[in-house]
Structure formats: structure tokens, C-alpha cells
């Protein structure tokens, strides 16, 4: 299938991309790795009049450490993230998540920023960045601003990014020593997207859960933290019994959508199972 016609412009800097966005108004879309946008354009479900390619923008690339955070350029591919020694050392949860996205070819092209800006409800990153308390650094005509991830995902395919802004970097606080982590996913058997994905971060003190952070993606219109599960775990023994008990709360009132391969009811059931399993996997890593 072939996309409808469009005008193509390359941005060489974020500033230029922002000014192009202003110039073209709502007719333009930003092109990052293209792995969300191009498939839609091929089916003509999306027909932007102008594509602004961020490919040449060097400042959007690369991963670096800044204090206790890792700062990741929005154009960093899933594969670069999954194989970056810095990411694997400082935010291994994000590396584990990136390694489970799509397939090799998708990971070679798809980007962190593209995925987070597109906000597909079945994307993997949202669960991971939610538990990591990432900060989204955007730039628009009025300058730079930072959006905490808790305010980023507004609804299905909708984020806090403004139409004339570019998501430039994602600032991720490094995981702390001794913290366990996991990203556990049930992939859609055809598309590879998440029917359900659970991210966990677990801190344990002398056999007791000090802090647990759990987020889920894929089940409903947008990814969510699971505060009831997190609260139920705090101060509890770090063992299977309390994980199982707390994980049951993952299903509570969870806004799930029906899918051909998994009904809302089944997804709610799996939310508890995957939460328990994710916590157990995280606990193994605490012990390692």
C-alpha cells in the first residue's frame, strides 16, 4: 500500500523543527523512526500534508548520564536503548522493556521519543517510564518545558505534548542499587504489541517491601500506575504470598478494553497474574 502524497522537509535542529511546525500548523506531522506513523499512512488512516523528518537532528540522539539521571535523546532507537551499556547499568528496566518491543527490525528503526509521543495504548514503554518517574523534556516556540510522566499520557494516542512542540529528551532517574525490576509482557500474537505489559520496581529492606512501583500497559486506553497494589505492598513481607494478595488489586476497577485475543475480563485476570509474576521476577533481582 502506498501513502497519499505529502510534502517532505528535513529538520536539522530542534529549533528548525519547531519553526516548521509553527509554519505548517496542524497540517504537519513529525517523523521520527516512522514505525507508528508510516504504517498508518500506508493504510491511508493518516494523511498528513507535511512530514517533518527529525532524522538529521543530531541533538536528539544519544544517551548520557547527568548526575543521578540518564538522559536519552528522543531519536534513540529501541535497539540502541536495549544495547546501551549505560542504560543496561543504570536503568536496566528500560533496557529490558526496549528489548521486548516488536521485533529486531522494528527495534532498529523505532524510537523512544516516537513511541512516547504517539502513545499507542498497546506500546511497551509507557509502563516502564511510569514506574521510573521519567521527565519528558519538550521544546516549543515558548522555549523548553519539562512534563513529568505522570502528566504525559492523557488518553489513547494523546499526550501532553503540544502541537507545536518537539519531545527532545527523556530524563530517567537511575535505578537505585539493590532495587529489583521487571518488565513482563504478553505480546499480541500477530502484531507483537502488548496485550498486557507490567513494569515493576521493587525496593526491599530486610525482607520487607520498602517501596513498590507497578504500572500496566496494553489493557486499556492508556498506561497506568497501580497505586492500590503499590500501597498494599508497602511494609509487607517480600514474598509470594503478599505479592499474590496485593496483585489481586491490579484487577480492581481496571479500565480494560476487549481485544480479539483477550477480553477485558481476561485482561483484568491477567493483570493480577502478571503483576504477581513481575514482582517475583523483580524480587529475584533484588537478591542477585
Amino acid at each position: 500500500m502506498i501513502p497519499a502524497t505529502f510534502e517532505y522537509v528535513r529538520a536539522k535542529s530542534v529549533r528548525e523543527a519547531v519553526s516548521l511546525l509553527q509554519q505548517h500548523g496542524g497540517r504537519a506531522k513529525l517523523l521520527a523512526g516512522g514505525h507508528s506513523l508510516l504504517p498508518l499512512m500506508k493504510l491511508r488512516l493518516s494523511q498528513p500534508e507535511v512530514l517533518i523528518d527529525l532524522g538529521p537532528v543530531e541533538e536528539l540522539r544519544g544517551v548520557r548520564e547527568e548526575g543521578s539521571s540518564v538522559v536519552i535523546g528522543a531519536m534513540t532507537t529501541h535497539d540502541e536503548l536495549a544495547s546501551s551499556p549505560l542504560v543496561r547499568e543504570r536503568v536496566p528496566l528500560l533496557a529490558e522493556c526496549a528489548a521486548q518491543i516488536g521485533d529486531v527490525q522494528v527495534r532498529n528503526r523505532g524510537t523512544l521519543g516516537g513511541s512516547l509521543a504517539h502513545a499507542d495504548p498497546a506500546a511497551d514503554y509507557p509502563a516502564a517510564v511510569l514506574v521510573l518517574d521519567a521527565q519528558m523534556e519538550c521544546e516549543g516556540p515558548a522555549g523548553a518545558r519539562t512534563v513529568p510522566v505522570s502528566q504525559w499520557f492523557v488518553d489513547m494516542l494523546t499526550t501532553a505534548l503540544r502541537p507545536d512542540e518537539v519531545l527532545c529528551r527523556v530524563r530517567v532517574p537511575a535505578q537505585t542499587r539493590g532495587q529489583g525490576w521487571s518488565y513482563t509482557k504478553l505480546p499480541h500474537p500477530a502484531s507483537g504489541y502488548s496485550l498486557l505489559g507490567v513494569a515493576c520496581l521493587l525496593s526491599v529492606d530486610g525482607g520487607t517491601v520498602r517501596e513498590a512501583r507497578v504500572a500496566i500497559t496494553g489493557v486499556g486506553p492508556k498506561a497506568l500506575r497501580l497505586p492500590k497494589v503499590e500501597q498494599a505492598l508497602a511494609g509487607k513481607p517480600a514474598d509470594e504470598a503478599s505479592f499474590a494478595e496485593a496483585a489481586k488489586l491490579a484487577s480492581d476497577g481496571l479500565d480494560a478494553t476487549d481485544d480479539l485475543y483477550a477480553s477485558a475480563e481476561y485482561k483484568r485476570h491477567l493483570a493480577a497474574v502478571y503483576t504477581k509474576r513481575g514482582l517475583l521476577r523483580a524480587l529475584e533481582r533484588v537478591r542477585q
Binding site: 499480541h188 500474537p189 500477530a190 502484531s191 480479539l260 485475543y261
Partner: peptide, 23 residues
């Protein structure tokens, strides 16, 4: 285990692309 072609009651093929039908 995996493959099925599914229609809705109006006759729309719900497993209408390769990212819906599990080869």
C-alpha cells in the same frame, strides 16, 4: 492454537491484516 478468521455480525473481517491474524 492461534489462527482464526473472525467476522463481526455485519460481515466485517476483524482479523483483516497480518498484524491481526496470527501467522
Amino acid at each position: 492454537l492461534w489462527e482464526f478468521a473472525q467476522y463481526d455480525q455485519a460481515g466485517n473481517l476483524l482479523t483483516g491484516t497480518m498484524s491481526d491474524y496470527a501467522v
